[in-house]
Write a protein that binds this DNA or RNA. Sequence first.
DNA 1: ACTATTCATCGTAATATTGCAATGAAACAA
DNA 2: TTGTTTCATTGCAATATTACGATGAATAGT
Lengths: 110, 110
Amino acid sequence: MGLAKTEMFTDDQNEIALFAKAFGHPARVAILQHLFKINSCVCGDLVNEIGLAQPTISQHLKELKNLGLIKGDVEGTSVCYCIDNESWSKMKKVMSAFLDQDLTKTGDCC
Amino acid sequence: MGLAKTEMFTDDQNEIALFAKAFGHPARVAILQHLFKINSCVCGDLVNEIGLAQPTISQHLKELKNLGLIKGDVEGTSVCYCIDNESWSKMKKVMSAFLDQDLTKTGDCC
DNA sequence: ACTATTCATCGTAATATTGCAATGAAACAA
DNA sequence: TTGTTTCATTGCAATATTACGATGAATAGT
């Protein structure tokens, strides 16, 4: 069906899945890494940096923006994208809590 | 197309995307949380715990197993699934390095 | 006004994912 | 052996994702 039954899971579980889904494509990982690396906004440099077509990059940027992880400022004909540090921190807290579940447990069973 | 062009990205980027994709569905998040919580489990318990049909749970477990994050031991008619702590640690290193990119940077630009 | 540049959106094709009923395979009990 | 339990696999339908050409909207330069 391709339809995730979100209503049967907790808000926490759905939030983790949403963030993870954003990182679930190498193009979006590459975009975020590049935005961090140059530490100042880029626009369509991403199209050159990554090998995908402009509409494709634009689509990935839109998804990241909808999640709030990045923001974009219009500057003349170009758009300046950069990481939203506050949102990134919040996301990191949620994901870290999930990844660090193993710290409290003791040993394997199998 | 629905086809990620993995060849145009680094191994690092593809690995992050693969792990993230595993967490990109609330059912798999719920499965992992439950496995951590009770520190061992069988498929049938998960079917009751989570509200999905048995074949669906089995499919999600298979994906997590293929990634190496969990392992399953056959015990009579049932199968005991649990977290693979070593793999989980390795995954955590990769994901943490990605999430912690912001630590080195200074300020926003937008 | 005209043109070029930059990015967003639309439309569409190809592929992937999700979910489950039906069925199969293996272990166990009687 | 027969039936039961437990999980895996198959097959299929519904939906989601990815990618890009074509096109639109806005700005800037001439």
